[in-house]
Write a protein that binds this DNA or RNA. Sequence first.
DNA 1: GTCTATATGGCGATAGAC
DNA 2: GTCTATCGCCATATAGAC
Lengths: 220, 220
Amino acid sequence: MSSSTDAQPARKPRGEYAKTRARKTAILDAALEVFAQSGYRSGSIRDVATLVGISEAGLLHHFPNKVKLLEAVLEHRDDLARSVVPMDAPDGADTLRGLVELAAYNASVPGVVELYCTLSAEATSPDHPAHEYFTRRYADTRSAIANAFRRLADAGRLTIEVDPVRAAISTIALMDGLQVQWLLDRDVVDMAQELADFFGSFVTELRADTEAGSDLAELS
Amino acid sequence: MSSSTDAQPARKPRGEYAKTRARKTAILDAALEVFAQSGYRSGSIRDVATLVGISEAGLLHHFPNKVKLLEAVLEHRDDLARSVVPMDAPDGADTLRGLVELAAYNASVPGVVELYCTLSAEATSPDHPAHEYFTRRYADTRSAIANAFRRLADAGRLTIEVDPVRAAISTIALMDGLQVQWLLDRDVVDMAQELADFFGSFVTELRADTEAGSDLAELS
DNA sequence: GTCTATATGGCGATAGAC
DNA sequence: GTCTATCGCCATATAGAC
């Protein structure tokens, strides 16, 4: 993505590049925190810069403007999520288990959860800079989860007849909605448990295999 | 709530009061639209005033500051929601049906849905002016719906054993999450239908009685 | 009850020194 | 690569005229 190394091939073997990269990830972490707290529109580049300990102009050297910064944060985050959930596993149950694990993991990073809740709501407006991103992201997630349900249905592991796409919609809705309630009152809501129970209500043999996820859940 | 009629009992029978009230509701409607579009933090009093067709100062005559305006909008909206959903009906099924009807009605007022999605996400931050409001509101709604499930369980109308509070949590989560997806892509999601199906998966005899709600759903 | 005018301050972004 | 300084804009809120 970045073009900072395009021109110079192998001259000047200084430690500069590593330093820049460290600074960049520091900025991304800070941006995550600020955007999570205040949303994108109200969160200020100034706050991010202060949190990192540099000036506004210093920050804008690394990310040319606020929108680019947001996009970088979202991409950064998506890489991580993709590593937790095997979205196109041959066994649909693995995907569902991955989602439960993700819910459990999320309970350990409230800042990230806050960012996504706030942003996905904000980005509902068509003129929001992340609107396209979220529209695409939801469509992709929906079809990936629908595929998982389809594979489970083919394997005869669904106890009732369900429309895969609609089951995917409900699954995502449940995950999103649980996050809001969890953020407002963390003692009342166990996101991973509710999600696992939801799956358990129409998928066979998911519960027994999901112990790893349950262990993770106790970290919260 | 308002104190504009407190002092003067019956003197000066002019049309002034009515005019003020009309202006006030016009402001509330505009505020709803602006806050829905941009969220509370980014939505500006200036935009609201412009939309109504008065000046900023003129608006601030009716609502002393931005926070008071937000509170008025939320109260205004809650009155309406309460009139749709019988939260403590003796028959729990009536409450659930009310929720499905509410989901169907919501599909006809995207601005309101947007407001609540954006605000509830924003208000997740403890320092948000509406944080207390949403915390309390979610707790109240949760216990009301839990009561409905409890009554249904007592009447032997639940097909599986469920914890009333957890069922309430999932119900609310589903409703909230469906709203985000619906706002992003209104053709893919039918909020009322998904909610009704969810209830149908463990409540008996809800489907047959809910025709009125289904009719409403087709308005979207 | 509504206006204009203004005080005060935060915002994103740019220019140019080091 | 980071800084200071600054521009131009928009925000909430107040003061005072009409």
